[in-house]
Design a protein around this nucleic acid. Structure first.
Lengths: 340, 340
DNA sequence: TATTTTCTGTCAAAACTATGACAGAAAGTC
DNA sequence: GACTTTCTGTCATAGTTTTGACAGAAAATA
């Protein structure tokens, strides 16, 4: 089954994988948990999911759990009966009821407080809930899709999120990669937005050094930041070629602190960024150390553990390598254990 | 006497022991303390206990002491009288009252704070309690079953849990073994869940190498995690045989198998490898240095060049950061010698 | 304005790292 | 086997990096 992804632009391998999973999952009623940094387009993904499910002609109701004040959220989700609290002048249906037959999208689900987590869990298990201040249970047929930009597993570990709810939600996990991992998608998107915002008839183009810089920047705000940025370019750029000069300092800084030795055709490689480091919960030293481990191991592997040669490959002195191995306690037996 | 354990699946020796104890204890009114990691199915065990007691036709009321905010817990357990506190618009019965004649299941009892521990103890001794803000004592016939995933004896030793309450609760201790100790139960359960979730008519089967891997993995989330995995398998698996390739990375790693490139299961981050290094024509030092540059710059950028904070983000000492910047000659104005 | 807090750079001591020199061990060659 | 070449680990030394202490600047707060 093929699936309509026309609203999501890009063609990176990672995205393709996402689409494959999406296609399998869409027709089912399973809960899906989408994680990805903000601005990566989780909303679009959910829309595609809904459109391709059997619920396509029923409502898709989004709730941003982080944006609604905690006191209101319960009533917003489940509705309330008249008199349930001070301002409850009349009964009101919640989003669960509005979504009847369709899909409920719980964005930023990591923000839910414990008491609501319990209630959502109850719904997932029993398919029923109560309005605030109500006593009768309401049965409901709603598919739940949740999204978060936090690391929920981490939250579970440190007690901020219920383990049982996590497992309920996480039946199918979909991880939306941040823009900096999507390789050439950056350029494809950049040009897409260029066309979108370019009102003047003259066609704007990206100079090749600008392309290089765009690729190197880490886009912490993801697609949103890129779109924003291209819109600005369209307005500010006088001539019809966007050059390195036109790019903001941030982008320049990330791009070229060290002049490259070669033109470096960039096939997918992206310098690891701060976000990557933080995602792994590491500090600078640990992170660099881990990368070093990787390189040492690969070098040793490719030289059949002949340290002399490995050192050569790495461009360090043999003795240096030996000391490093001693310190890191690396021996032919050690396997890289990849803990997230 | 035999006991209905149909909801609990497994046949490992350890479990059988548990059932034996369960059968003896169920018909009595003794308190029972169940310990076991979360996700091991404590709830199911309690349900079996209740169903096989003389209280089977009375309510089984669960309270997750860890999931209810401390301020609310007392009122939740014992109820409150009108006006007991700000939002107590009307009197309300607590779970103890709701459970009258039946069983009260106190989950995560280790989370109780001291004042509540006293009140529970009082109930266990006197079989009576007071509502919050109430003065009259309420007599009650309730069997208490408690559960915890902490080591309560440990908590007692270090003062986090009252010794007297512990002994009251711990009359009959039942220890639910974690999944990884239950040997072949893992496979029995796996297949059970496979059937449960398999909507398509084709029968899903576990390939033998997959079985081996499942047995090897440590299942920190226990039965819950296993169920979750199996549900996912049912949806994502194309063919009707679940092979090692289909299993998530975690499981493969535990079994010592190198995970293949399967982007769907991670967020696309790759540790920079030897190839990347060589492609850039750098040696180990230059490469790591370049990565460090990137991280320093991003940290500075995200802290608006407040070095104090940047250092914090990076997990290094401020002075260290300053020295690094000096050596690398990085400053806010360092816009680059372009590589053209 | 006065006061407190946060931030800054410098410097010398302490901790850590890289490397050349040495002394053998393995492997390869004749 | 005799000889050469490549590899190995250890260690002291020179070189780097990290860090705590200090003293003053800048920013926030009252």
């Amino acid at each position: 089954m093929s699936i309509d992804t026309s609203e999501i632009i890009g063609q990176s391998i990672v995205l393709e994988e996402v689409f494959k999973v999406l296609a399998k999952v869409a027709p089912t009623d399973t809960t899906v948990l989408i994680s990805g940094e903000s601005g990566t387009g989780k909303e679009l993904l959910v829309r595609a999911l809904h459109k391709n499910s059997h619920r396509w002609d029923k409502p898709l109701v989004p709730v941003n759990c982080g944006a609604i004040p905690k006191e209101l959220l319960e009533s917003e989700l489940f509705g309330h009966e008249k008199g349930a609290f001070t301002h409850a002048l009349r009964s009101r249906a919640g989003r669960f009821e509005l979504a009847e037959g369709g899909t409920l999208f719980l964005d930023e689900i990591g923000e839910l407080d414990m008491s609501l987590q319990v209630k959502i869990l109850r719904f997932l298990q029993e398919k029923e809930f109560e309005r605030v201040g109500g006593s009768k249970s309401i049965k409901s047929d709603v598919r739940v899709v949740a999204a978060t930009n936090r690391n929920l597993e981490e939250e579970v570990r440190c007690g901020g999120f219920r383990e049982d709810l996590f497992y309920r939600l996480n039946v199918i996990p979909i991880v939306l990669p941040p823009l900096r991992r999507r390789g050439d998608d950056i350029l494809i998107l950049a040009e897409h937005f260029l066309n979108k915002y370019n009102r003047r008839n003259n066609s704007l183009k990206l100079a090749s050094e600008a392309r290089k810089l765009l690729l190197n920047y880490s886009w912490p705000g993801n697609v949103r930041e890129l779109e924003n940025f291209m819109e600005r370019m369209c307005i500010l750029c006088d001539n019809n070629r966007i050059t390195a000069q036109d790019l903001p300092e941030k982008v320049l800084l990330a791009g070229g602190i060290e002049p490259q030795l070669r033109p470096a055709h960039n096939d997918g490689f992206h310098w690891p960024g701060l976000k990557d480091m933080q995602e792994k919960g590491m500090d600078l030293k640990a992170f660099l150390d881990r990368i070093e481990d990787q390189l040492l191991l690969e070098a040793l592997d490719s030289s059949d553990w002949v340290k002399n040669q490995a050192a050569e490959i790495l461009g360090i002195k043999r003795t240096t390598l030996i000391e490093k191995l001693k310190k890191k306690d690396i021996s032919p037996g050690s396997i890289i254990n990849d803990d997230n």
